[in-house]
Amino acid sequence: MFALVVRFDLIDTEKAADFDDLVEETVAAIREREPGTLVYATHTVENEPLARVFYEVYRDRDAFEEHERQPHTRRFLDSRGEFVESFRVEFLAPAAVKGIPG
Rank of each mutant, 00 (worst) to 15 (best):
F91W: 08
F91M: 04
I30T: 15
R69N: 08
I11K: 07
L50A: 09
A95M: 08
Y40M: 09
H72V: 10
R74G: 06
E56F: 12
T26E: 03
E82W: 01
A93K: 14
R80I: 15
R52L: 11
T13E: 06
P35E: 13
A29M: 07
I11T: 04
F76W: 11
A93Y: 09
R33S: 13
E25G: 04
L77M: 15
S86V: 07
I30A: 12
F64G: 01
E66M: 07
K15P: 00
R61E: 14
R75C: 01
E82K: 15
R88T: 10
Y40V: 03
P94A: 13
E24Y: 05
Y55I: 11
V45C: 11
E85K: 15
L77Y: 04
L22H: 00
L38G: 04
R80Q: 14
P94R: 13
R52G: 11
D62H: 10
R7Y: 02
R61T: 15
I100D: 07
A93F: 10
N47K: 12
I11L: 10
G36W: 01
F54D: 03
E32N: 11
E48A: 15
R69G: 14
L4V: 03
R80K: 15
L50R: 13
D62T: 13
H72N: 09
P35R: 10
F54W: 14
E32T: 09
R52Y: 10
R74A: 07
F8Q: 01
E24F: 02
V5W: 00
V45G: 11
E24A: 12
P94V: 10
E85H: 15
N47T: 10
F19N: 02
V53H: 05
V89C: 07
F2Q: 01
K15R: 14
P71C: 05
V6P: 00
T44Q: 12
E90C: 08
E68V: 09
R33F: 11
R7G: 02
L10G: 00
E56N: 13
E56V: 14
F83Y: 15
E56R: 08
V45H: 04
I11V: 13
R59F: 02
T44P: 07
V45W: 05
A28W: 02
D60S: 10
R69V: 06
V53N: 08
Y55W: 14
Y40Q: 04
E48V: 13
L77W: 03
R74L: 11
E32I: 04
Q70D: 04
H43N: 15
E32C: 04
L38R: 10
F8K: 02
G81A: 13
Y58S: 09
A93T: 15
A28M: 09
P71D: 04
S86Y: 06
E82P: 00
F91L: 09
R74W: 01
R75H: 15
S86F: 08
Y55E: 07
R61M: 12
T37N: 02
